[in-house]
Computed example of a mutant assay.
Amino acid sequence: MKKAILFFTVTLLFSTILTGCGIDLNRLGAEKYYIQVKGDGDKKDDGRQDIYDYTLTGFNEDGEEATLEFFALKELRKDAYLILYYKDKKGVTSYQEVNEEDIPEKALEKLQEGVK
Results as ranks from 00 to 15, higher is better:
A107K: 08
D45R: 01
K116I: 09
L56W: 08
N99V: 10
V115T: 14
C21D: 15
Q49D: 09
E64C: 09
L56Y: 01
K32W: 07
Y54F: 10
T57N: 09
R27K: 15
T57R: 12
F59W: 10
G91W: 05
G58E: 02
V98I: 15
Y85L: 06
D50H: 09
L82R: 04
D88F: 07
L111E: 03
F8Q: 13
K110D: 01
K2N: 14
I35R: 04
D79W: 04
F14G: 02
I5R: 11
F8S: 15
K44T: 10
A66S: 15
G58W: 04
G39P: 09
D50F: 04
R27V: 09
K43S: 09
D62F: 07
E100R: 15
D40N: 15
L108S: 01
T57G: 10
Q112T: 11
N60I: 03
L18I: 09
E100V: 08
Q96T: 14
L25P: 05
S94Y: 11
L76Y: 04
K89T: 13
S15R: 07
V98E: 00
I51A: 05
E64A: 12
E64V: 11
D62S: 15
S94T: 07
G22K: 06
T9K: 11
L73I: 13
Q112W: 05
E105Y: 08
F71T: 14
Q112H: 03
T19D: 02
L25T: 14
Y85C: 10
Y52S: 07
K32F: 02
I103F: 08
P104W: 03
L6F: 07
Y85R: 01
L84P: 02
E64W: 12
F71I: 08
E65R: 07
I17T: 13
Y86R: 13
Q112V: 07
A4E: 12
M1W: 05
Q49V: 01
T67F: 12
K2M: 13
G41T: 05
T19H: 01
V98R: 04
G39I: 08
G22E: 06
L68G: 04
I17R: 10
Q112S: 11
D88L: 13
K78W: 02
L28A: 03
M1R: 13
K78V: 12
Y34N: 03
A4D: 11
L84Y: 02
L84Q: 09
Y33F: 09
E113Q: 15
T9A: 12
V92C: 07
F70W: 06
L82N: 12
K87T: 11
L13N: 07
K3H: 13
A30H: 01
Y81E: 03
E105Q: 14
E64T: 11
N99Q: 15
R48L: 12
I51W: 01
L73H: 10
M1N: 15
G58L: 01
L56T: 06
G47H: 01
A107H: 07
R48P: 07
K74W: 06
V115I: 15
V10C: 04
Q96M: 14
V98L: 03
F59Y: 13
I103E: 06
L111H: 00
R77P: 06
G91Q: 12
E69A: 14
K87N: 03
K74N: 08
T55Y: 14
G63L: 00
